[in-house]
Structure formats: structure tokens, C-alpha cells
Amino acid sequence: MRFTVDHSFHIGSQHLRGGMPCQDYALSHTDSDFFAAAIISDGCSSGGKTDVGSRVVAHSTLTAIIENPHLDERSIDRHCHDRDRRAMMALCLKPEDMLATSLYIAIWGDRAISRVVGDGVIAAVHRDGRLVMNKIDWANNMPVYRAYERRDNYRDFISAHGGPDALGFSQHVVSWDGEFSLPHPVEAGLVGTSIDHDLQMFRLIAVFSDGVTQVDGMDWREVVTQLMSFKSTGGAFVKRRMLRFLKDCQAHGKGPIDDIAMACIHIDHEAE
């Protein structure tokens, strides 16, 4: 088995027109046959310098994954917080600068997990080509950020959503045989939503920012389907797909209104 990884992020028309920076970021890393990670982070538009925060969050997350070969989510979280804090001190960042989501896929040996802290989409292509998508949404476009734990242990966030039992976030699953939505209480999503993947089943697993839900004239399912339709999986394969997608978008709309990011791991089951 061999892994290839790549990532891409692009500014949305709203930020471009407003002279704002791209607040999405993506990162990927592999050692080819044992470890692979793909990460995206989406900075909050109404936060501080979240273009910097999203980069810090993505890099902290990657480092934390590398430091945790057993992929223990809580241990990864602790390491992420530790790295975030150190980066904040070193760069004099404020808590509001760190309001950024963290979505990742990680593979260590034969274990693969994906995790969403915030909102966005996880998508995977089975070895037979079937696509499954899992979208995490938070009510009122108020996703959880791990920075909230450091700030007040989520107190204000829970309150803003109407309490720990309020159905503040939902999971929308789309697969080849239908789709369904599951509402969840706020409390269940505070530290993130994880999925364990059977590595033998998939050839592509990707994470996306919620920018895929805001592409002019396109449904998010179609956006994800198109972005997962790689023509090749070598080198900058995600960047090539994203660039062609953006070009094609211009034919029928304005393209992404919000910033958009994706990171993907390709699993080559035939490679020795």
C-alpha cells in the first residue's frame, strides 16, 4: 500500500472583492507507505487574524498527528492545544485570531481516522468508485473551534447555541443508496466528530472546508463529487483538480463565494 497526498485552498469571491485574505488553509504530508495526513482549516470571518490562525491550527494539527502514532484523538487534541499556545505566544496572536476549524484525515499503519472540529465535509471514494460524503453543519453558522476550550471551556459557545442539549449541529450523510440527516446535541460535538475508516475499503479520503457549500449555482454534493473526480493521483493532483474545477465554474457562475480548501489522501492498494 502506498499513499499520495496533496491539498489546495483558494480565496472566495467575497474575500477577494473585499480585499480580505484567504482564511482557509490546507496541508498534507506522507512518508509514502506508513503515514499520511491531510488537513484543512477554515478561519472564522468575524474573528481576528484568522488567516494566520488557520495556518497555525493546520500546522499544529499535523505536528500533533505525527507525535501520536496510535491516533488517540484526545492525545492529539492535547498536543494541538500545546502547539497552538506556543505559536500564539511566539507570534503574539490573540485568542480571536485562533478561531479556526480543524478537519483532518490521518493514517498510521493500518489505522485511518478522520476528524472534524468545526464544520465541513469528509468524503471518501470506495475502491469500486462509489462516493460517500459526510457533512457537518452547526446551527446559525456558528461552528465549534478548539480555541473555545482554552478560552472558557466552551461556556459561551454552549450558551450561544441554547445549552448543551440543544440540537446545535447535524451530520448529513450522502451515499450511493440515499442520504439522511442526524441532529446532535451541542455537547456531543464540542471536541469534534471522528470517523474510523476501514483502510482496505477506500482509495481516496478527503476533507473539505464549508466553502464547498457556497459555490455559485452548484449544490455542495455536486461540488464535492467534481472535486473528488481526479484524472490522476500523482504530484499536485488536488491542485490540478481544484484549478480545473475553478476554471470550469467560471462557465456557469462566479465560482466559490466563500474561501474553499481541500486535502486528500490517495491510497494505492496495488503498490508494494
Binding site: S232, G234, G235, A236, K239, R240, L243
Partner: peptide, 8 residues
């Protein structure tokens, strides 16, 4: 071989 090319 195009599959071996890495850039965009």
C-alpha cells in the same frame, strides 16, 4: 509519462 509529472 504524464502520470509521473508533479506540477500543475
Amino acid at each position: 509519462r504524464i502520470a509521473g509529472l508533479g506540477a500543475t
